[in-house]
């Protein structure tokens, strides 16, 4: 279980989250819905160990998280992956798509083996892998971000409005890719979206719960 209890986050004097609880179970898709500004994305960053909350507890498979961001324990950090809404804001513009997909290997000192396969699975061609973000479309860049997120075989994948910027076919493709990963590895997925049709369709097959915020 990826479990958040009583999470509180403030930016300056503005309280963004107060007493937020959420559990992401392995093997199912948990949906998280709510209007923009309700704190969904902030909670996503806490769950991915990228933001230290001001209060509350986060546990990953029973281990409490005590350190955050780069200082977080590596084996905890690699258990949770986060995919953002806007791929352009989530990548280093100087890297090629291959380097983006392989970043987690370099960051953890592991040899980049299966990233090329991953890139192929998310629908990127060798020609695309040598390009940089400004030379590809949002959809192609998001594919590289999905490959990056799955590179270290995370136990939990948090998809924060992952397909909002994408056309229907690319959306269906990336969701299918994550579903294949889930069924193959038993990973837990948190699907964050304000799109109810997508949410019902995505959580449905695994009979995962839908949590509403705000």
């Amino acid at each position: 279980m990826l479990r958040a209890d009583g999470i509180a986050v403030s930016y300056g004097r503005q309280r963004v989250l107060r007493d937020a609880d959420l559990t992401v179970a392995p093997g199912v898709v948990t949906g998280l819905a709510g209007p923009s500004g309700c704190g969904k994305s902030t909670l996503a960053r806490v769950l991915a160990l990228m933001l230290r909350p001001d209060g509350g507890r986060l546990t990953v498979d029973g281990t409490e998280v005590r350190r955050w961001r780069q200082r977080a324990a590596r084996d905890l950090r690699t258990k949770v992956a986060l995919i953002f809404q806007q791929p352009r804001l989530a990548v280093d513009p100087r890297l090629t798509l291959r380097e983006i997909a392989e970043e987690p290997f370099h960051a953890t000192g592991r040899p980049p083996g299966p990233a090329a396969d991953l890139a192929d699975e998310v629908g990127l061609t060798p020609e695309l892998l040598v390009r940089r973000p400004h030379e590809v479309s949002d959809g192609q860049l998001q594919r590289a971000c999905v490959a990056r997120a799955l590179a270290l075989r995370p136990r939990y994948v948090i998809c924060d409005e992952m397909t909002t910027m994408l056309d229907a076919s690319t959306q269906a493709h990336l969701v299918a890719r994550l579903e294949a990963y889930r069924t193959e590895t038993g990973a837990g997925i948190l699907a964050i979206t304000h799109d109810d049709e997508l949410l019902t369709r995505w959580t449905g097959p695994s009979e995962g719960p839908i949590v509403r915020m705000g």
């Binding site: 629908g123 061609t125 020609e127 056309d167 229907a168 076919s169 690319t170 959306q171 269906a172 493709h173 969701v175 299918a176 799109d195 049709e197 997508l198 019902t200 369709r201 995505w202």
Partner: peptide, 21 residues
Amino acid sequence: AGLLEALPSRSFTAIPGRPPE
């Protein structure tokens, strides 16, 4: 037709392959 069918409210299946460069 494929694009419309890919919507979550319809069959939610991607068009196979990828667009050309």
